[in-house]
C-alpha cells in the first residue's frame, strides 16, 4: 500500500467513526422525541404523579426541579463568584493557591453520588433537616461549585489585564475595579457559564436521591407562605425532581405506565436543557454585541 492509499483509507475511517457518533446522537434525540412527545400533553404537565396507577403527570416534579435549580443557584453563585474573584484577582502564585486549586479539582472529580451521600450524612442525618429541598439544594451546590468557579474564573481571566490597570491607575480600589469594570466585562461569559451549569443541575439525580428525597407530597400552589408544610415554596419539604422521578418509576417497577411516563419526562427534561444551552449562547452573544457596540 502506498502512503497515499493509507492516507485515503485513514481519512475514510475517521469520517466513518465520526458518522457513527453523529448517528448515535440522532438516534438518542430521535428516540427521546418520538417515544416521549406523544406522552407530553397539557394534562401530563399539569397533573400530579401517581405511583400505583397509570395516567400520572409530572406537575410537582417539574416545579420541584425548577425550584431546586433556583435555590441551588442562589446559594452557589455568590460563593462561586467570591471564590473565582479570589483565584483570579487576589491569589498569589504560591503553594497556598496550588493547594486551593487542588482542593477544588478534587471536589469536581468526586462522583455525584458521593457528594449526595455526604449531603445525606451531614444534613439529613446529622443536622436532622430530613429529606428536603434545602438539603438537595446544598448537595447540588457542592456538585455545582467547582464547575461554576472554573467557568467564572475563566471569564474573569479573559478580561485583559489592561482593564485592571486602567481602573487602578484612576485611583480606584482593586475591589471597585473588579466590581465595576472586570465583572461587567466578564458578564457574557459568566452568564453563559451559569446557564450551562443550570442545565447540569437540572438533569442531576444521583446527588438528590438521598437529599431532596424521592417523594412528592401534595403541594398547595395557592399557599405562598414558605413556612407552611404544604406550601409549594416550603424549602423544608421533601421534593422529588423530574430526573429522580424518571429513575424511580423505572427502578421501583410499581407504576404501570412507567415507560411512557419516563419517556415523556425525558422529553421534557431534554427540551428544558436544550433551551438552557441555546439560551446561554444567545444571551452571551447578545450581551457581547451590546457591550462592544456591534463591532
Amino acid at each position: 500500500m502506498t502512503p497515499n492509499q493509507t492516507d485515503r483509507i485513514a481519512t475514510q475511517l475517521i469520517n466513518f467513526l465520526v458518522l457513527i457518533v453523529v448517528l448515535i446522537l440522532l438516534f438518542l434525540l430521535g428516540d427521546i422525541i418520538f417515544s416521549g412527545f406523544p406522552h407530553v400533553s397539557w394534562h401530563f404537565l399539569t397533573s400530579p404523579s401517581s405511583s400505583f396507577s397509570a395516567g400520572g403527570g409530572i406537575r410537582d416534579q417539574l416545579f420541584n426541579s425548577l425550584y431546586l435549580l433556583v435555590l441551588t443557584l442562589l446559594i452557589s453563585f455568590p460563593l462561586a463568584l467570591g471564590s473565582a474573584i479570589y483565584l483570579s484577582e487576589y491569589a498569589g502564585n504560591n503553594w497556598r493557591t496550588g493547594l486551593i486549586r487542588t482542593a477544588i479539582e478534587v471536589l469536581s472529580s468526586l462522583p455525584s453520588v458521593v457528594v449526595g451521600l455526604f449531603g445525606y450524612l451531614l444534613f439529613v442525618i446529622s443536622f436532622h433537616i430530613g429529606f428536603s429541598i434545602l438539603s438537595g439544594a446544598i448537595a447540588l451546590t457542592f456538585f455545582n461549585l467547582p464547575l461554576l468557579v472554573r467557568s467564572i474564573e475563566g471569564s474573569l481571566h479573559a478580561v485583559p489585564d489592561s482593564q485592571r490597570e486602567a481602573g487602578i491607575a484612576l485611583g480606584l480600589s482593586n475591589w471597585r475595579t473588579i466590581r465595576g469594570i472586570i465583572l461587567p466585562a466578564a458578564l457574557p461569559g459568566i452568564l453563559t457559564g451559569i446557564i450551562l451549569s443550570a442545565g447540569r443541575v437540572f438533569g442531576e439525580a444521583a446527588a438528590l436521591i438521598y437529599t431532596a428525597g424521592q417523594s412528592a407530597p401534595i403541594l398547595n400552589y395557592a399557599d405562598w407562605n414558605p413556612t407552611d408544610g404544604s406550601s409549594f415554596l416550603n424549602p423544608m419539604r421533601p421534593a422529588e425532581t423530574l430526573a429522580v422521578h424518571i429513575w424511580k418509576v423505572n427502578t421501583e417497577g410499581v407504576t404501570p405506565d412507567a415507560v411512557s411516563v419516563s419517556a415523556g419526562a425525558s422529553a421534557v427534561l431534554i427540551i428544558v436543557i436544550l433551551i438552557f444551552n441555546f439560551g446561554a449562547r444567545a444571551i452571551g452573544n447578545h450581551l457581547y454585541k451590546k457591550m462592544t457596540g456591534g463591532k
Binding site: 489592561s162 482593564q163 490597570e165 486602567a166 491607575a169 485611583g171 461587567p184 466585562a185 457591550m291
Partner: peptide
C-alpha cells in the same frame, strides 16, 4: 489610591472600559 488620583497614567495600548 490617592497617589494615583494625583498622578494619572495612560498606557501603551488604548484600554477604554467596555
Amino acid at each position: 489610591y490617592e497617589v494615583r488620583k494625583h498622578i494619572g497614567m495612560v498606557f501603551q495600548k488604548p484600554n477604554p472600559f467596555a
